[in-house]
Amino acid sequence: MSRPQGIRTDKLSLWYTKFQALVDVSLEIDHGRVTGLIGPSGCGKTTLLRSFNRINERIEGVRIEGHVHILGDDIYAPEVDLVELRKRVGMVFQRPNPLPLSVRENVLFGLRVHVPRGELRRDELNHAVESSLKEVGLWDALKDKLGQRATSLSLEQQQKLCIARLLPLRPEILLMDEPCSALDPSATQRVEELIRELRDRYTIVIVTHNMAQARRISDECVFMLLGQVIEHRRTEDLFLSPKDERTANYVEGRFG
């Protein structure tokens, strides 16, 4: 069965001033799956992730060659509006970064930014808050604390809130940069469960250092080394019968 295409990169290369962080990366990531990006520190997996919503460009000295197509459109084409792109392609960071606002306002922040004041009806807003928080499993815990400051929640709740914050904008793609690295094991488990629940509705790309986590939650896995994609296969195959020797060495823990 062929699935619709989520993300496709064509010979994508990226330089930080002189250092080449990505080398001719050509990838196809299916829509509606969880794809794990694994590899040792500095291999370019986070850089690759950040080039999917063009947030790398805020760093000085970045130069990019090649193409990234998301849902069929070239996102580096001149007519692309970054605002529209980032609505469709949401990102979750290593450390939860809720804004210092209430829980409710965090969830609604995206809508407030995009829809002119006065065009948002109160019941629509309430609905957006409720459905987004339900989708990430926070509604029951937080429905009576919507006015509480988001920065006072537990880290697990903060990270889930950061996912919920993306949902009112109806994104297609969720990028996650080591979303569990600041969480304890039981919180990690619950966030992983959430990622599994979200997988059918979104294309999820997750960067992780934790190979066991990549095995647990991803359908496909991409192994990177020194800015290059070494192997991209179904997670099971990549871990059980890697084709490339370097992949085998990494997944068996001989380096990295």
Partner: peptide
Amino acid sequence: VPMSFREACWNVGATRWQTIRHV
């Protein structure tokens, strides 16, 4: 003001001015 606040804003598609104004 932590950089992560700005990134959080940009990621829901806020412009620089909206980020400055709201956060």
